[in-house]
């Protein structure tokens, strides 16, 4: 699947408290979570994000709490993929488990700017910044983690696969 979208650009150490502050965790309804997504660092995001826009972050994206509400809020905002220099491990797992693709490209991410239009080929892990012409290759997911992502998340995978039998 090839995606194309406008970039919402964030920096290093974007923690799950700013992705979805704990004061909103008394609900786990995806739409409600999306309505507060990123509010503490970017009040414009929830109101202006368009379906298909792409989120780009720096190092250690999604650090902090294990709240799965964070990738769920981003996904329910209409973001189909997150690109970052690196991801915090619980967020990384959670994103794959809920069917939100995550691509790690290291420091090369620095050349992607807010508002750029990027194309992402999820199968190949290739990214093209249409605005600058730069291309990037994401690190592939290891082993059966690829199958979890391909199944659209862990629940679909478990229901279809034998790995956890």
């Amino acid at each position: 699947m090839v995606l194309e979208g406008k970039v919402w650009r964030y920096g290093d150490n974007i923690d799950t408290d700013v992705i979805i502050p704990a004061r909103y965790l008394n609900s786990f309804d995806p739409k409600e979570l999306a309505s507060h997504c990123m509010v503490d660092i970017d009040e414009t995001f929830a109101e202006n994000v368009q379906k298909g826009d792409i989120m780009v972050g720096g190092h250690n994206f999604g650090c902090g709490s294990s709240r799965e509400h964070a990738p769920i809020a981003i996904k329910a905002s209409g973001i189909p993929v997150i690109i970052a220099a690196s991801f915090a491990r619980i967020f990384y797992r959670n994103a794959i488990n809920v069917g939100l693709p995550v691509l790690e490209i290291g420091d090369a991410v620095n050349s992607i700017k807010a508002g750029d239009v990027v194309n992402v080929d999820l199968e190949k892990g290739t990214i093209v910044d249409q605005t600058t012409g730069d291309t990037f290759q994401a690190r592939p997911l290891p082993g059966f983690v690829q199958d979890i992502a391909a199944a659209g998340g862990l629940i679909n995978y478990i229901k279809g696969a034998k790995a956890h039998e």
């Binding site: 797992r93 983690v145 629940i155």
Partner: peptide, 18 residues
């Protein structure tokens, strides 16, 4: 170690985690 709710839901059913 910490995991998310989906990992936890799966572990409650299977007793396993990757």
């Amino acid at each position: 170690t910490g995991v998310g709710s989906t990992d936890l839901g799966v572990a409650m059913a299977t007793g396993k985690a990757w």
